[in-house]
Design a protein around this nucleic acid. Structure first.
Lengths: 256, 256
DNA sequence: CACATTATTCCACATTGTGGAACTTTTGTT
DNA sequence: AACAAAAGTTCCACAATGTGGAATAATGTG
C-alpha cells in the first residue's frame, strides 16, 4: 500500500475508514482504537474532524461510527463516471434472465475487486454480496480474469501485495500456482472459480476491455455447484458471459 | 465546516477531493492547485499519497485526476447501509409510472442534498441530475422538506452555513424568508419548488421519517412547468408523493 | 454505590507536513 | 526543429502541526 510519497495522517484516516467499513459500520471509538492500533486520542480527534466534514457520522446517540453521506456522494459520482457502467445494466439483465443465476460486475481496487453492480439469482442459495462488497482477487473469477489481462508491470505490484489465505480447501495459496492459473485463464479467455472462495459456489467471469484493449472490469455469473454438476456447464455459461463482455467492450470502442 | 477538532491535512485532503468532484473528474495538478489555493508541492504530495491508496486515480496517461475506486467501495457500502434505500426502489418505480415524471430520493449532507436514487421522466425535457448529484437545500423541494422537519438546534447550524445565491428570479435569497417558507412547508406537509433552482422546473417533495419521526430522506417528483400549469397539479402530485413517503416511513417502523 | 469501561480534554514535545526554490518534463507555437 | 511557456517533480530546512501519555469526565455494569 505505500508509495513514494507518504502522508502519515492520511494513512491513519484511511486505516480508520477501512476499519469502520470492515466492522460494517458497527465500531465505537474503543474498537477502532484496538483494531487499528492507532492511539486513542488520535483516533478520537481524527474521527471528530471527519464528522465535522460528513466523512463519518455517529449513529445511535453517540456510539458507533458509520461511513458518512460525503462518501456516498463521492462514491456515486465516481461510479457514474465509469462510463461502461450504464451500458452494462441492460446486458447484465439479459444475462441474468437467460441463465437464472447471479450476474455481477466488478472493478479492480488494489488486491480486491469491488462489486459495482449486481443482478440476483432466482435461487435462494446464492452468495450474499452487495454493491460495494470487496472480494479478494486470488480466489474469485473476477480477480483472475482482470489480473490475467493486466500488463506484467502492474500485475507484479499486485502479486507482491496479495496475502493468500485459504478460504476453502480449493483456494490457491501460493503465488506460483496463481501465476500459472492466470496464464491458463488468459489462454482460455475466461476465468473459472470452483469453490475457491466459498464451498458450494462457482463462477465464470469474462473481461470488459476498453478501446486500447485494457481490462477495466469483469463480468461474471456465479452459481451453486449443487445445481450444476455437468462438466459442460462452465463452458456453456462462459459463451454467454463472453458475448455480453464483447458487447460491453464494443460499446467502449473496442473493435474485436 | 469547522468543528472543535481540526486536522489541517485532512481539511486539505477534503478540499482537494471536493475540487476534483466539482471539476467533474477533469482537473489536473495545476487546476487543483489554483482552485484550492493549496501549495503546488503539497497538492502533489497529497495526490500521490491518495493515489497509492486508490482514493484518487489518474486517467489519460498522467493527466487529470478522478475520484478512485476506494471511494466507490465506501460510498456504495454507506449507501446500502441506509436501510430505507432498498425499500424505496419499488415505491419510486410505481410513482414514476403513475406520474410519468422524474422521481428522486435524496438525503441531507451539510447544506446540500445528495440524490441517491432516481427514476427518470419519460419526457425529454427534465433536469439533468444523477445519483450522487448535490443540490443546495435552499432552492430545492428536497432541501425544504428535510429542513422543515429538522429540530431547531440542527436547523440553526445549517441555516448559518447556507450561502444564498440567486439561481433564478424566484430563488429565496435571505434567511428570514427561508425560515418562513420552512414553516409553511411543515404546515402544508410537503415542499414545493417553483422554478427556484432552474427556470422551467418545478417539484414537490415529501419527507421520509424513521420510527422516531426524524426525517432521514426526501422523496420528490419534478416536472417541467411547461407541461403542467394548472394550479391543482401540485396538490394532486403531492397526494401521490405523500402516499409513497408514508409507505416508506412505515417500512422504517414509523406508525403514523 | 463502587468499579470498570469508554469518551474527552490538556499539554509539552518532536515528528510530520509544509512550501519556496530549483530542476525536469511536457506541451504549444513559430 | 528550436524555443518558450507551462506543468510536473524533487529537494531540503524549518516550524507548525499532529501526536500520545496522563489526567479528568462521562457512561455503563454488577
Amino acid at each position: 500500500m505505500p508509495g513514494k510519497y507518504r502522508i502519515k495522517s492520511l494513512e491513519k484516516i484511511i486505516t480508520i475508514l477501512s476499519c469502520i467499513y470492515d466492522c460494517k459500520n458497527c465500531a465505537n471509538l474503543n474498537e477502532i482504537t484496538k483494531k487499528t492500533g492507532i492511539n486513542k486520542t488520535t483516533c478520537f480527534r481524527l474521527l471528530q474532524a471527519m464528522m465535522a466534514m460528513n466523512i463519518v457520522i455517529q449513529r445511535q446517540e453517540h456510539k458507533v461510527y458509520s461511513l458518512g453521506p460525503q462518501l456516498i456522494s463521492w462514491g456515486l459520482f465516481a461510479l457514474s463516471e465509469l462510463d461502461f457502467h450504464k451500458e452494462a445494466l441492460p446486458l447484465m439483465k439479459i444475462l441474468q434472465t437467460d441463465t437464472g443465476e447471479s450476474v455481477n460486475l466488478s472493478i479492480l481496487d488494489g488486491t480486491d475487486v469491488v462489486i459495482i453492480e449486481r443482478f440476483r439469482s432466482n435461487h435462494l442459495y446464492s452468495l450474499n454480496v452487495n454493491n460495494g462488497t470487496r472480494l479478494p482477487v486470488y480466489c474469485t473469477s473476477h480477480g483472475k480474469i482482470i489480473l490475467s489481462y493486466l500488463p506484467e508491470s502492474k500485475l507484479e505490484v499486485i502479486l507482491k501485495k496479495i496475502q493468500f489465505i485459504p478460504l476453502t480447501n480449493r483456494t490457491i495459496i501460493n503465488v506460483d500456482s496463481f501465476r500459472k492459473e492466470l496464464k491458463k485463464t488468459k489462454k482460455r479467455g475466461y476465468a473459472i472459480n470452483m469453490e475457491e472462495f466459498e464451498k458450494g459456489m462457482a463462477a465464470v467471469a469474462g473481461p470488459v476491455l476498453n478501446h486500447k484493449g485494457e481490462v477495466i472490469a469483469s463480468l461474471n455469473v456465479s452459481y451453486a455447484t449443487a445445481r450444476h454438476s455437468e462438466l459442460q456447464y462452465n463452458s456453456n455459461l462462459a459463451k454467454k458471459v463472453l458475448i455480453a463482455c464483447k458487447k460491453l467492450s464494443h460499446s467502449l470502442g473496442r473493435i474485436e
